[in-house]
Amino acid sequence: MSQMYFTEDHEWLSVEGETAIVGITDYAQQQLGDVVFIELPDEGKDLVQGGQAAVVESVKAASEVYSPVSGTVTAVNADLEGAPALVNEDAMGAGWFFAVAMIDPTELDNLMDQDGYDAFVAGLE
């Protein structure tokens, strides 16, 4: 059973064992509007927590996506290249960005859970 975590930069993280799948939240895709392009990291790239990992672009904006945890990229969502709209349609599922083999599970302590994130978003509006 996977566990969900969230960041203040509106990334989500689904953790199962030592693998984490990363995407942007539904709130984030709504703010961006129509997503037109996603620049994903190369497989095998080493990421550090809080470091830039990807870029997501709408027509009028480009936003950096930061890695919520440190580790190595083990997979990227190749479907996004031909169908960036997946991020708008299913941000929390088919619109995932990349998977990371985590090296330090204690980093998860810095992240929010679903209730924490919901409260964080409510505070923004």
């Binding site: 392009f37 672009e57 027509v59 009028k60 904006a61 480009a62």
Partner: peptide, 12 residues
């Protein structure tokens, strides 16, 4: 593809 340009990406 305007996200390449200065009015959106600024220093990047």
């Amino acid at each position: 593809l305007s996200t390449r340009e200065q009015h959106i990406r600024r220093e990047k």
